[in-house]
């Protein structure tokens, strides 16, 4: 008999205490499930469940064996995942993606903090945008990442959502730099420098939609992968840049936007791992990354998604 398969059936029935629900969870019909439990009881020589017409209960031997069975299943899972990681050559490493505009000091702080926490693990960082990280996580080429929302996080786990208000980087000589806060509409007529759309299409589209809605329709958008390039465009007077708080450089000044209309939302994201060691490694990385982003990048936890008002129109209504 396939003992592991039968023990798995036993554990699921013990958890559900209902053959119908257990069968549904296992994706099989109820009669074969009952047969497997009977065969397991025969093999072990004990009754595992008391079945009455109304309910299913674990017997005393059943309770004893449940923990043992669970342990075996966890070990079996580990055999598979260790084998898989060994096959992919990823033993003892966390492979993580980071956005390219995070900045050198933050990357350094992240590496240092992780090294302190988990000196036993190798950290492989890859500089890559949100869209590419999501793809790589789906394919198993990354274990974790730091992404800008909104993005498609189906089948992935998310860490706490962190917010970072976006302001405008202006030439120091601009008359707008004279006020403490700048209204988006005051930027009318200026070209815009912003991160490339490929990096995080959701956040990019959201940012441009917000600009237009607040009266700023940039005549041209310059996609700057590197913050230094955006700074160059600002210094040259070619564009203004929408970026989180930036230290004033010679010739450029950062000002907050009136009413904080734009907030970048960032979080850690990872693939759930069935291997407890790997799961712990990923959890350690994401905890360290979240702490570093809060401490070094001026990101603050957002308690809840901001309440949105959505007015129903027929063409976008329920099942139109």
């Amino acid at each position: 008999m396939n003992l592991v398969g039968h023990l798995n059936c036993f554990v699921v029935v013990a958890e559900e205490l209902h053959f119908g629900r257990a069968a549904e969870r296992l994706g099989i019909a109820q009669p074969p499930l009952s047969q497997r439990i009977q065969r397991l009881e025969k093999e072990l020589g004990v009754r595992l469940f008391d079945r009455s017409s109304r309910k299913v209960e674990l017997t005393a031997p059943g309770r004893l064996l449940l923990e043992e069975a669970r342990e075996i299943l966890v070990r079996v899972d580990r055999v598979y995942s260790v084998a898989e990681r060994a096959r992919l050559g990823e033993v003892g490493a966390v492979r993580a993606g980071l956005p390219s505009d995070l900045g050198g000091p933050i990357v350094a702080a992240l590496i240092a903090a992780f090294r302190e926490q988990r000196p036993d693990l190798r950290l492989e960082l890859r500089e890559t945008g949100t869209a590419e990280q999501i793809r790589a996580l789906g394919e198993g080429a990354l274990d974790a990442g730091i992404v800008r929302h909104p993005c498609d996080t189906r089948d992935l786990e998310l860490g706490p959502m962190l917010g970072q208000p976006v302001g405008v980087l202006l030439p120091a000589s601009s008359r707008l730099a004279a006020s403490a806060e700048v209204h988006l509409a005051d930027l009318a007529g200026h070209d815009l420098a912003v991160f490339p759309r490929d990096e995080a299409p959701g956040a990019y589209d959201e940012l441009l939609a917000t600009c237009r809605r607040h009266g700023y329709a940039p005549p041209a958008v310059h996609q700057a992968r590197h913050p230094q390039f955006a700074l160059g465009l600002v210094l040259a007077g070619t564009a203004v840049a929408l970026v989180p708080r930036t230290e004033d450089a010679a010739g450029a000044t950062w000002r907050p936007l009136l009413g904080e209309p734009i907030t970048w939302r960032t979080s850690c994201v990872w693939r759930p791992s069935r291997d407890p060691d790997q799961a712990r490694a990923i959890a350690d990385f994401t905890a360290v990354a979240t702490a570093v982003l809060r401490r070094e990048a001026g990101m603050a936890p957002l308690d809840a998604a901001p309440a949105r008002r959505v007015v129903q129109r027929p063409a976008s209504g329920f099942l139109a």
Partner: peptide, 22 residues
Amino acid sequence: TFGEVWARLDEPGMLDRLRALD
């Protein structure tokens, strides 16, 4: 309400939870 579903679509994990979108 359906409007409430829309309003909360932003919440982390919400899109994952909705069977109707899977």
